[in-house]
Design a protein around this nucleic acid. Structure first.
Lengths: 155, 155
DNA sequence: AGAAAGAGCACCGATCTGGTGCCAATTGAC
DNA sequence: GTCAATTGGCACCAGATCGGTGCTCTTTCT
């Protein structure tokens, strides 16, 4: 439904929380209690983020999770990709265009494949331009794009 | 999964097809055979587009569907909204902010509500800027936005 | 009258989503 | 060494969504 999942929402909540504690390892329990999110589900999400090397994990009594990189270098797109896969806007599309070519059985009559793909890439790039830092300090990241032709249409 | 549904895909295919035949009423059967799309499902989609006044419908032997407005005035966002509802990026968000205020039970501790909402609005605005015309004549709509600060982050 | 088209509604199976249970492995604190 | 707290891995569940279909009714042209 063109909607981010709870997994991504919880993941972003956790990551933003970690920004404040750079260096410290925070447990899934702490985050789940702080923001009232299901602990077990959050742990599942953080595990995936650790696998994607967005966070470092540490086991044991004082273990937990910490950002693997500075908040400026972690993008929302990366988080989304790790937690729900690269977004596809239509079934016939893949983010990395398969070298084998289209197995889309609407081809070659499908008239919207390419345009839809560009919409998806616009959304995708937008998420990849949005860093974790910008989620923490919104004023730091007001759009610096300037409209050149007011009648133009993006994408 | 941040993915447009088949309904939207089929709807856009049908609409793009109608652009070529402005004024003519084309039947769901014609479109379904032309693009190998399930006829009954396509009919369901076109019915919703008619209800949203994106297309006009005409019953009877020579009936069918036609664009209710010029292709320049129909946006992808409008189509998506008609076929799968306004996109929400997280469950706690609504497109039209309810005047009653947040019933989000993560509040007020949720640190990402506002940023996520801006991401969603960015995606949403992008789809609303994309017209049906731009899907038909892609060269007409290369992005006219100019990067002012290459280090900046959108949203 | 008959054929062709949309309108409405109910329904189905498959998949995805949110969430939980259980247990093993790791590690610091006592 | 023991214990408690933590992550890791797997399986599982109920509900929602999604893609798709069946059937009937109404409308309209021929």
């Amino acid at each position: 439904m063109l909607q981010l999942t709870k997994r991504t929402e919880y993941g972003l909540i956790a990551l933003v929380h970690m920004v404040d504690r750079r260096g410290d390892f925070v447990s899934a329990r702490e985050i789940s209690e702080r923001y009232h999110v299901p602990r077990r589900l959050l742990a599942e999400v953080l595990k995936d983020l650790a696998r994607a090397e967005v966070v470092d994990s540490q086991r044991g009594a004082t273990g937990g999770y910490a950002l693997a990189r500075p908040a400026e270098e972690v993008t929302v797109g990366e988080v989304v990709a790790a937690l729900e896969g690269a977004p596809k806007l239509a079934g016939c599309e893949t983010l990395e265009p398969s070298s084998a070519g289209g197995e889309c059985d609407l081809e070659p009559s499908c008239p919207i494949r390419s345009p839809l793909q560009r919409i998806r890439e616009g959304i995708w790039q937008q998420m990849q331009r949005t860093t974790l830092r910008s989620l923490v300090e919104p004023v730091f990241h007001i759009t610096n794009l300037k409209r050149v032709d007011p009648e133009s249409t993006l994408i």
